[in-house]
Nucleic acid binder design. Structure first.
Lengths: 213, 213
DNA sequence: CCTACCGATCGGTAGG
DNA sequence: CCTACCGATCGGTAGG
């Protein structure tokens, strides 16, 4: 792929991510790469084409990062943590492209839109199946794995809306914190290290068994 | 407010929510209320004005639903559950308006954009403070209350992207499940009722203390 | 509330 | 890769 083309996709990712696909004009993109509006078409065939290239590549990134972990053997909570870390890693590592994939894919025209919808379903299915496996083995406890998967992925995807590379929390710590929040929620921390010894955190009296308002 | 005006805002909410603010034209809205494009301006002053009306009202709905719970006394986890239920209730009960508020407020022009940004910060702060209070009292355990609040709100807001009123899970059950997922994560269920008796769920051997991949 | 219109901007193309 | 342009559509207005 030409350097110019790459440049165009990068600028388009940033603009689509910030103002949305419909809110960005080809002339906006052209300005970002110091070209005249019409000159873009020497490198791309249409605005849709640019959107597709961005979305397609981001979909691959998520898939390639998470799939290897899904098929590992090992405890479901451990795999789930790994998947969360991988997903967060893609979001923080390819913020603009990931944002476009996550929030602008709906502007794809058919049949590409449906193709991406299916791939998103499949991806969500990986999380669902690991959650369901953990639930079946008793390692996790969830009423509705499908709901839990959507809940979780929504939390992770929200990251793309506020994360900034120059923020106070680095990508690795962030990934750990998110994995922790995902699996344990707010009620308990994971393993806590006290004077170098890992100690499990027990149940908490005031919380467990608390009634609902 | 006139009936026509109400109708226009409803149609605009649905369209802004589905195709985005920039992806919706005034003529699209006009078609939805069986008017000619120009005739809309007998009822609204501008497209921005319509967006503002929708966003402003939704912001009020979230605030009015959640604020009373924030200031209640009582255990933090219980208040947090109530806040989650309230937030989910606004999303499911005013799906289109809530979607526009959550995802299209960025298209507001200054100074309204900044005004809404501040209100969103404040709203997030309510969640943060209840989480921090629960963390301080030992009822919750969270490394970073700000991060936890964002994580949680992202999960809740994602609901607006997929929830359908005619779906399999009703709004009340959904609110309960989401409150459960928020507080306990995937690792443990909340109070379980066995033969009519509420029984706390204890710690789970395979999970607590499990190492990280 | 409609008809008819305004200037601006849109995605995209022709010709060089 | 630029200049100059195409038809379509945009948000919004005038006049009735």
């Amino acid at each position: 792929m030409g350097e110019r083309r790459q440049q165009i996709e990068d600028v388009a990712s940033a603009l689509f991510g910030a103002r949305g696909y419909a809110g960005t004009s080809m002339r906006d993109i052209a300005r970002g790469v110091d070209l005249q509006g019409g000159s873009l078409y020497a490198h791309v065939t249409s605005k849709q084409d640019v959107l597709w290239a961005i979305v397609e590549r981001a979909a691959e990134q998520f898939r390639d990062a998470v799939r290897p972990i899904v098929v590992q053997r090992g405890p479901a909570p451990q795999r789930l943590r790994g998947m969360v870390r991988a997903h967060v890693g893609v979001v923080t590592g390819s913020l603009d492209r990931a944002s476009v994939f996550l929030f602008e894919w709906g502007f794809l025209e058919e049949p590409r839109r449906s193709q991406i919808a299916r791939r998103r379903d499949q991806y969500e299915g990986w999380f669902r199946s690991v959650i369901a496996a953990g639930s079946a083995s008793g390692e996790l406890a969830v009423h509705d794995p499908k709901l839990a998967a959507i809940f979780l992925l929504s939390a992770l995807n929200g990251l793309a809306r506020w994360y900034r590379a120059d923020g106070p929390v680095g990508p690795d710590l962030l990934a750990d914190r998110y994995a922790e929040l995902a699996v344990h929620g707010l009620a308990a921390t994971g393993p806590v290290t006290v004077r170098g010894v890992e100690r499990p955190v027990g149940p908490r009296g005031p919380l467990v068994g608390a009634g609902s308002p």
